[in-house]
Amino acid sequence: MLRLAIQKSGRLSEDSLKLIRECGISFITSSLKLKTESTNFPLEILYLRDDDIPGYVADGVADIGIVGENVLVEEGKQALTVEKLGFSKCRLSLAVPKSDNYKSIHDLNGKNIATSYPNLLQAYLHEQGVQAHIHTISGSVEIAPSIGLAEAICDIVSSGSTLISNGLKEVERVFKSEAVLIANDSLDEEKRRVLDKLLFRIHAVQRAQKAKYIVLNAPHESLQEIKDLLPGIKSPTILPLAEEGWSSLHSVVNEDDFWEIIEKIKDAGAQGILVIPIEKMIV
């Protein structure tokens, strides 16, 4: 049985549970339970404070965990990282009151900065050659300037709406973060096998999220040109249509290139283009 630690509540928790379900792993959740066991996979889920997850995994209380990269680096546990997961993306940023005439990071020399991430902030300030007074607080960082505790804050930002509602503006990006899968470096052989199976499923889900399955009709005189634009996993699948002189092409397109490729194949003569989401993709 592999023990997975995830954040007990919040966006990261929701995204983590969504990924596990997309991997075909079933479990029952309850706000009253601090752990649950899968009914169809050798996995037990522990619901913990995100700040505690790196330490629990390092100490072997949990075998693996999903945590924000910012928390992992702040706790000095980067060596535990197994995989970047691509969701719950955010940034650690410096912010000051909107009314401040902020020009550069050096405006913060000698100032007070409130944060829940003193290590990441100190490393950034040192890199920038800035000396400031760091006040470590555990929550409600955005209120610090309005109550006179600090002239600036350093906190996690997603959309920026929380900063705006507290009369602040983002001025520097300190660290980019996303969810990462971490693991204890002393897993036994059996737990390593289960982790490999879980990673296999995660990779299949990740590939599917980055790709689109497309089906189109094309005249034979345009087949080669369109085929060259649609590499697919190996090459496009081509099937003859009932109407003579036409074929159907099936392919997989990377989402980043999707619209550019669609425009090109349409210009080349493709018709009836269907775009279908992919649930899993195994290569």
Results as ranks from 00 to 15, higher is better:
A132G: 13
A114D: 02
N119H: 15
K98Y: 14
N119S: 14
D100C: 06
T115G: 06
S99L: 10
H135M: 09
E127H: 15
D100N: 05
Y102P: 14
H135G: 11
N119I: 06
S104H: 08
T136A: 09
G110H: 05
N101D: 13
A132Y: 04
Y102F: 15
I134P: 00
P97W: 07
P97R: 02
H133W: 05
I137K: 15
Q131C: 02
K103V: 12
N112C: 08
T136L: 09
N109W: 13
N119E: 15
S104N: 10
Y102S: 13
N112K: 06
I105W: 07
Y117F: 15
Y117G: 01
P97S: 01
H106L: 11
G139E: 09
I105C: 12
D100Y: 10
K103A: 10
Y117D: 03
S99K: 09
S138M: 11
I137E: 15
H133K: 09
S138W: 08
Y117A: 12
I137F: 13
N101M: 10
S116W: 02
L120K: 01
K111C: 02
N119R: 09
G129F: 11
H133Q: 12
L120I: 02
Q131Y: 03
Y124C: 05
I134V: 05
S99D: 02
N101Q: 09
L125T: 02
I105L: 07
I113M: 00
N119Q: 15
Q128N: 02
H126S: 15
N101P: 06
A123P: 02
N112Y: 05
P118L: 08
I105G: 03
T136S: 14
G139R: 13
V96P: 02
G110Y: 04
K103E: 13
P97N: 03
Y124Q: 00
H135D: 12
P97A: 00
S116D: 07
A114M: 15
H133N: 14
L108K: 08
Q131L: 09
K103Q: 13
N119P: 06
E127Y: 11
G129M: 13
D100M: 06
L120R: 06
H106W: 07
Q122M: 01
V96R: 01
L121Q: 10
S116M: 08
N101Y: 13
Q131W: 11
I105Q: 11
Q122W: 04
H135P: 05
G129W: 14
D100W: 09
A132R: 05
I105S: 05
P118C: 11
E127Q: 14
S99M: 01
H135R: 14
Q131F: 10
Q128V: 00
H126G: 01
I137D: 15
H135Q: 13
H106K: 07
S116E: 07
N112R: 10
